[in-house]
Simulated assay, not measured.
Amino acid sequence: MADSVSVLSRRPARIKKSYKIELSVEGQKTPLTARKAPEFKDYFDVLWKELDVND
């Protein structure tokens, strides 16, 4: 699991925006436990919007 995500622009690729990911996961952080964190949906929505090709 990553602690940060960088969104790249179109070619030539540059870092468009970086996000520090802070999930409230107790114990071992796995993809399944991370998806259960309350913040996961918010990060998912924000990052998916960043990837919208129409913007």
Rank of each mutant, 00 (worst) to 15 (best):
F40K: 00
K36P: 06
S18P: 01
T30I: 03
Y19W: 02
K20S: 15
D55M: 09
R10Q: 09
D3Y: 15
G27D: 09
R35C: 08
P12N: 05
E39H: 07
A34M: 11
A37Y: 06
E50K: 00
S18R: 12
K16E: 15
K36T: 10
T30C: 02
E26A: 12
S6R: 09
S4D: 09
K41I: 10
P12F: 02
M1C: 08
V7P: 02
K36W: 07
T33N: 03
A13W: 07
S4F: 15
D3Q: 15
E26R: 12
V25G: 06
S6F: 06
L23I: 15
S24D: 15
K16Q: 10
Y43C: 01
Y43F: 06
V25L: 05
V7K: 03
N54H: 12
M1S: 13
A37E: 08
Y19M: 02
R35E: 07
A37K: 05
L8Q: 01
K36A: 11
K41V: 12
K20N: 13
F40V: 02
R14E: 10
E26D: 15
L8H: 03
A13C: 08
V53Q: 15
A37N: 06
A2R: 08
S6W: 01
A13P: 05
D55Q: 15
A37P: 05
D3K: 14
K17L: 07
R14M: 15
S4A: 14
R14T: 13
V7I: 14
W48P: 00
V53C: 13
E26W: 03
K36N: 11
K29Y: 05
A34P: 01
N54Q: 13
K41N: 08
V53T: 14
F44I: 03
L47R: 01
L32E: 13
V25R: 05
R11H: 09
R11W: 11
K29W: 12
A37S: 12
Y43Q: 03
K17H: 03
P31Q: 00
